[in-house]
Design a protein around this nucleic acid. Structure first.
Lengths: 305, 305
DNA sequence: TGCGTCTATAACCTGGCGGCATGGATGTGG
DNA sequence: CCACATCCATGCCGCCAGGTTATAGACGCA
């Protein structure tokens, strides 16, 4: 009897949530689709897994049995997936490193060089990820390690080391009145339209909208972008403003976009994350990040700030 | 990253077989369909799993990694499936027993009665299976135990106890010339058209065509049926003849169909099979089968034979 | 009585799976 | 040397299953 792991994921979330509507939101599918999928799983097994009521979905006895064991199945599968993809890159002597645009910085070339010295014969393959993939391929085991902005969704599932911390600034259209100012209070930006990440990124989106630091004020969304290019264009074209790491001022300078320091938002960090702590090659890479990354990045920053 | 277990099953068979064409036959799908599925799995993982050549499909290094671990994943899933369905029947105090039509006999009611005495409060739910499901639901964990004709495909995967042995006879249209005879040599039937089970039943079909006892002569197929009713009709209408257990002469007597003893074919057995040997209720049922089943069945047989 | 909060149903669109027929590459035997 | 057998790949088509939006139905609450 065959099942798609998607069905099992869906089931697990509904079981945990006890509520179709909320589960559907978490899974980024419509509620009717979830209804159908749950029903299909029940038909497939020939077992009623939930008792429905207007209060929500409550597990039946066999439903509980299933719910207890599905998570292990799914993590087993993830593990096999990782090993398989890992075997491919190991065979090719390639270390796959994902990164979010904003997480690569002056230190990155140095890290790669250091790794090359430490592991001759190996090649680093850098893969840039879009915002809609906030773990930069880690969650699909598409990469062995990732350079990321912290915090990121699912951070607790991986090994993470912080590489550097820097303040968040704001990127605005150069014509914007506030662009003339030297420093800006975040409170002054509450009513501005923001250029945001896709909704599927969950609280990652919220983090860069700083929803926690708005005292309840709802952010206005002026545009949704998925890559640095789109993002810069959207800002330059006046669709909105956006928070960005200080280093973006150097890496993503563009006519029409001005970066300014902001007071009143927490700083952001760059970190390296990886899944398999038993892989010596990955550990070497992490060491390179920590070694030259920390000093190198700080050095560069001190230089240019 | 979601996968259907079907993909994994397909992959496992191709990996084991090393040959798409043969794997497709084993899986009862067309070879192009398999090609596509294997390719899809490779695309999904972003990993080349096989190296193709005219010699067949050879696993790559990552392919080997995957092939080593997929069987365990699949059996884990089967296990969870069994536990979930089992939880449902346990909660309802129902013992689900599958049976192939020809495996139920005079002893069956007695077995059920004995079980009812041993487990008051429990109910036995008898589920008749079609020929296309030779394990009578055991393979999908749809039943806790099954009364089957031995041997059956996948027999080695389950616990099995033999309940009785009986010769195979032949069922023929009453108008058939051989119906006038008292005994028939199997060799005389080699050229007759047979009423057979569906091809998907693999060697189960062959067993009832007695292909092993034809010294290479290809059986002729006159009709394919899935249930006793169809089967009887097909024979009565002269589409073909068929081997059948001796007891069928009593249980499936019908005008137009005559049963005759056959020499030169191995006898057949009825057995009880079950998956979960740790389930005390199932063990009780098996005991009932062995206790009253053996004596009862033999008794009844002696009576009527 | 009307509203908010659940889940279920209906109608529709699309993509993927499976089947058949066929192509292309490559050894093998008459 | 050519016809054939044996592999895997491709093209085309029918069908089903998944997703979406809109809406219905059940029920508690103000």
């Amino acid at each position: 009897m065959d099942v798609d792991t998607r069905l099992l994921r869906y089931f697990a979330v509904v079981a945990e949530e006890g509520n179709l509507t909320r589960a559907a939101q978490r899974l980024f599918v419509s509620q009717p689709a979830l209804t159908k999928q749950v029903k299909q799983l029940e038909n497939l097994l020939g077992v009623r897994l939930f008792t429905r009521s207007r209060a929500g979905m409550a597990l039946t006895e066999p439903g509980r049995t299933l719910a207890e064991r599905v998570p292990a199945l799914l993590t087993d599968w993830d593990r096999v997936l990782r090993d398989t993809k890992g075997a491919a890159s190991r065979a090719a002597r390639v270390l796959r490193v994902g990164f979010l645009a904003s997480a690569a910085n002056e230190a990155t070339p140095e890290i790669i060089a250091a790794f090359a010295r430490r592991r001759p014969g190996w090649r680093v393959e850098m893969r840039q990820a879009t915002w809609s993939n906030p773990s930069a391929g880690l969650s699909d085991s598409d990469v062995d390690a990732a350079l990321l902005r912290l915090p990121f969704p699912g951070q607790e599932n991986w090994h993470v080391e912080v590489l550097l911390t820097e303040p968040r600034w704001v990127a605005l259209p150069s014509a914007h009145p506030l662009a003339a100012r030297d420093r800006i209070e975040f409170r002054e930006l509450w009513d501005e339209p923001f250029v945001a990440a896709a909704p599927e990124t969950g609280w990652w989106r919220d983090y860069w909208l700083a929803t926690d630091e708005r005292e309840g004020t709802r952010p206005r969304i002026g545009a949704v972008t998925d890559t640095p290019d789109d993002w810069l264009s959207a800002i330059a074209n006046g669709y909105g403003i956006a928070l960005a790491p200080e280093s973006a001022a150097r890496f993503y300078a563009r006519p029409g976009v001005t970066y300014r320091p902001v007071d009143g938002v927490t700083p952001t960090q760059v970190g390296v994350a990886w899944a398999d702590d038993t892989n010596p090659v990955v550990r070497d890479f992490v060491k390179c990040c920590l070694g030259c990354g920390a000093s190198g990045a700080l050095h560069a920053e001190g230089h240019q700030a």
